[in-house]
Amino acid sequence: MSSNLLSVEGLTKEFNGFCAVDNVNLKVEKGSIHALIGPNGAGKSTLFNLLTKFLDPSSGKIIFNGQDITREQPSQIAKRGIIRSFQISAVFPNMTVLENVRIALQRKLGTSYHLWKSVSTLNTLNKEAMDILDSVGLAEFSDTITVNLSYGRKRALEIATTLAVNPVLMLLDEPTQGMGHEDIDRVKELIKRVSAGRTILMVEHNMSLVASLADTITVLQRGSILAEGSYSEVAKDPQVIEAYMGNAHVEVLGEH
C-alpha cells in the first residue's frame, strides 16, 4: 500500500451527462512505468486532466504520496512534482530551446515574481539547462527558435522541460504520437533512461513500446478500467483481446 505513489479512488467525470471517466480506481506504484492504453475516446486524456486538475472531477479522490490532492489547483499539483505533458505538443514556440528549459528551471530560483531584476540573472541556469538538453540530444539546438524544430525534437524538448522540474511523477500523454520509427526509438530510449528513480504514467498507442517499457498496463475503455496487469497478462485477457488488443497487435505488426 505504501509503495503506491498515486492512488485514485472512484474517479468520475461527467460532461453534460456523458461519463468520460467512470468510477476509475487506479494505483501507480512508486518507481514503475505504468502504461494507460485504450481506444480513442476511452477517456485517457480526460483522466490526465483530472489528475492534474485541469478538469474538476465530478466525484472521486486522488491521493498522492498519502495526501489527498483532489481539491488542489493545477499549479499546486505541479509543485508537488506531478508534471504532465500534453497530447498535442506543449512547447513555447517562439522561445529558443534553451529558454524553454529555463522556464522550467526558473521556478526553483524563486525569482519568478521579480519584475525589477534583469533577465540575465537567469543565466546561472544555463549550464544546468544545457546538461538537460544534452541528455535528450538537443544540446546543439539550444539557440534554435523552437518552432523550427522537427516534430520529434519538439517532443524531446517537452520531455527535457518536464525533466527540468525534477518530477516525482511524470504523466506523458502519447509521447510518440505522430512520430516516425527513428524518433520513436529515440523517445523510447529517453523514457527508459529518465525513468530511473522516477515514476511514469504514460498513455501510449505503440504496443511494442508499451511491451518493452511498461511494468504495469491499465486498459481503459469507455471511461472504465477493462483490465490491468503486466503486458503478458493483459495480452492474454480475452476481454482485452476482443475489445482492443487484437487491433493493437495488427497495428504493431503493420503500421509501426
Binding site: 485541469f54 499549479s75 522561445m95 521579480h114 533577465v119 522540474v165
Partner: peptide, 29 residues
C-alpha cells in the same frame, strides 16, 4: 522595458505562448 526583460517577464512570455504548459510546470498563471 525592465519588466519585459525580467525573470517575471519570461514567465509572462511563457503564458502568452502556451498557458496550459506554464501551469503544468507549476506556475500559478
Amino acid at each position: 522595458v525592465r519588466i519585459v526583460n525580467s525573470p517575471y517577464g519570461q514567465i509572462l512570455r511563457a503564458i502568452k505562448e502556451n498557458e496550459p504548459r506554464a501551469v503544468s510546470l507549476g506556475y500559478d498563471t
